[in-house]
Computed example of a mutant assay.
Amino acid sequence: MADLHVLAAMALALGLGSMVKGATGIGIPVVALPILATFLGLPHAIAVQTIPVLFTNAWQVWYYRKVWPELAQIRLLFLGGLLGIPLGTVLLTQVPERVLSVFLAALLIVYIVLRVARPAFAVTMRAARRLAPFMGVAAGTLQAATGVSAPVSITFLHSLRLSREGYLLAVATLFAGFSLIQVPALLVAGIMTGPVALQGVLALAPVLLCMPLGAWIGRRLSARTFDVIVLGLLALIAVQLLVDALAS
């Protein structure tokens, strides 16, 4: 019976994370990963979630592909993200994780305060074009070093005031690229074994059920409500980072 409770909790976490992902572009790593890690341990949980994360982001890339011209000015963000992965791997061995967590949490808090104090704040597309490759490298570096790129990637994309569809496409494209690199890395590391990969495939069941529901809900959110939810998720990430730093 305990096993059924564990499976139910994991399915609920993945379903809720997928629903949030469908609505806002951020979901499984923020919502589901902490719960999965409680039952499986962090490395196992990361490997299991990688397949649903890859699927959900690939699905959103395809679904919102028609708004790709909106992202033409920041296309170097995605290339920079991939180039940042090896830098993050090096950084992971050089900088204490606690220092990185506190820095990232502070970065998020500053941005949230700025957006609350100045609701009209936005980065112009001209400035975004110049910043995109550097933000991409920074996001990829943080993804490899900490597993969390949102303090840079989501903060940057959110500040551009893209349309909801453009924002979701940008997030999905960046995270799909990260996942494509992470899967072979987990295989080489021996973490993504056959049974773990099977668990990741089975985890798609609650994802397939709940992600379309999240997308349906997201299409009915006002721009302001959508903005508030994304800021709330960024605040949740900041809290998680600070908790991790204090626990380490």
Rank of each mutant, 00 (worst) to 15 (best):
S222N: 12
A205N: 07
Q49W: 11
I154G: 09
L162E: 06
A238N: 02
I229K: 06
R126N: 14
F121L: 03
L221D: 10
L131W: 03
V61N: 01
L12Q: 07
A117E: 13
L234S: 07
L12V: 12
A122W: 03
L36D: 09
L213H: 08
L233V: 03
Y167V: 06
L180S: 03
Q240P: 11
I112H: 04
L91M: 15
V239Q: 00
L241R: 03
M192R: 08
R161I: 08
Y111I: 11
V113N: 11
L104Y: 00
P29G: 07
L236N: 12
A247P: 02
G166R: 00
I191P: 08
P52M: 01
H5D: 14
M125A: 14
Q94L: 15
A235S: 12
L114E: 12
A127M: 10
A105T: 01
I112V: 15
A45V: 04
G136E: 06
L83R: 05
A150D: 08
F121V: 09
L92T: 11
E70Q: 10
H5Y: 15
A132W: 01
M192A: 08
R130K: 14
A138G: 01
F39A: 05
T93W: 08
R219W: 01
K66N: 13
C210G: 02
A32H: 06
L180V: 00
L213C: 05
V230M: 13
F55L: 09
L241Y: 00
V239C: 06
Q143K: 13
L36F: 13
G84R: 03
A58V: 13
V99P: 08
I191M: 03
V48E: 09
Y64V: 06
F134M: 04
V113R: 04
A235R: 09
R129V: 12
D227I: 11
L42H: 12
L160R: 07
T155D: 09
R161F: 01
F156N: 01
Q73L: 12
L54R: 08
G25Q: 09
M10N: 10
R161Q: 12
A128Q: 04
L186N: 04
